[in-house]
Design a binder for these strands. Structure first.
Lengths: 204, 204
DNA sequence: TTTTTATTTAGCAATTTTGTTAAACAAAGA
DNA sequence: TCTTTGTTTAACAAAATTGCTAAATAAAAA
């Protein structure tokens, strides 16, 4: 996360993001965040009204990124369906390597006791329709050609997201249980960019 | 989670597991756990030395289940590689529907500040070797036949785990962002049992 | 320079959470 | 019955965390 010479407010926000999204320390307190940002804890209350607002800002940022990625996937440039997916997979892997726990932060915050994460909900299901509509033609074509097994657009999206995101979340388990080291892990993740395409499309 | 007429210690443990593994409230305090178990909070300190030991017990249980599942996958009964995978996928989906956040609990606890989750490490890499050895022959055969794209055993395992586990974690996001309701979600997950096999093996 | 404003710090109060203890209660055995 | 043991409760102390404020400092404007 770029932190060089940032203004304090930005510094706090980005430190929080690093702790949550990169290091996956989802229980981190204002203490910890302030300390790691190298600023007085009071500044969290100066720039943000308090802990909850900081969390909300960080959360909203995550939602924005997530939406942006989905939009980028579906708001088609003039490239083929398959190339669109390839681009998404590569970008996605890069993103999950950088911020493996971003989505997990969102989930745990949604699950939190007194959470009011209504900003997530897609007003009229616009995003949903946009998404599914944009993908379904290309997907249907691939299915017809026998290059993708018969499935709904939802399932295809979930498969793609799963194959990109989960290995990032699972990293600590891989390292602890099968002693995969940092280098092997990175190599594996790079390989996945090609591999996921081969798994999604039978003819590659 | 079965809780009927359980003895207090068991009741506390299983309530904790429900809160963590099923509801995904990974920040839950002893307060909350005791209250939802309907017992006095002091009993957590009577049966477990404290919060940390309760967490450790719950964590160990999760590790045990995780190891057991991996062992079951690889300690081959006399069925084909492909049937082994099919069985694993079905079991896995069922498990993830029941306890969607079990692995996320483990990950966040590993990432926790002063955590000493050494019990995870596989003493001499036995599990790893056992696992990879047992899968590699069957996988090689499938690759040779062109039914699976060329990949390492690690990649194949990660693909399988991803496709089963991630949709469970992603449930709140699906519900919030694309308004997938409970029924649609369950239907989707059931469908996945067949679908994942089709994705893993090109000839199904 | 002086004044004003913005930022930062230290410290304290309020709240939450954890950990401990002594007493109350219940069940089982002598 | 009485005693012993195991279990539960309530109350309290200790620690951690949050939220707030007044004073100190730095920066900017007059």
């Amino acid at each position: 996360m770029p932190v060089v010479d940032a203004h304090t407010e930005e510094l706090i926000k980005e430190t929080a993001m690093r702790i949550f999204f990169v290091e996956g320390r989802l229980h981190a307190t204002t203490q910890v965040i302030a300390k790691e940002a190298g600023v007085n804890r009071g500044l969290i209350y100066y720039y943000f009204k308090g802990r909850d607002e900081l969390f909300e800002v960080v959360f909203k940022e995550a939602v924005a990124v997530s939406r942006k990625r989905i939009r980028e996937l579906f708001n088609s440039k003039e490239i083929s369906f398959r190339e669109k997916i390839r681009e998404f997979v590569e970008l996605s892997i890069e993103q999950h390597l950088k911020y493996p726990y971003r989505e997990m932060f969102m989930v745990t915050e949604i699950n939190r006791d007194g959470s009011n994460m209504s900003m997530l909900t897609d007003p009229g299901g616009e995003l949903r329709n946009e998404m599914l509509h944009s993908i379904s033609e290309g997907l249907k074509e691939e299915i017809k050609n026998g290059h993708v097994p018969k499935m709904s657009a939802e399932q295809f999206i979930i498969n793609t997201l799963s194959l990109c995101a989960y290995p990032a979340l699972y990293k600590p388990m891989l390292q602890q249980t099968i002693k995969m080291d940092e280098l092997a892990y990175l190599k594996m993740m790079q390989e996945r960019k090609q591999l996921i395409m081969k798994v999604l499309f039978k003819d590659i």
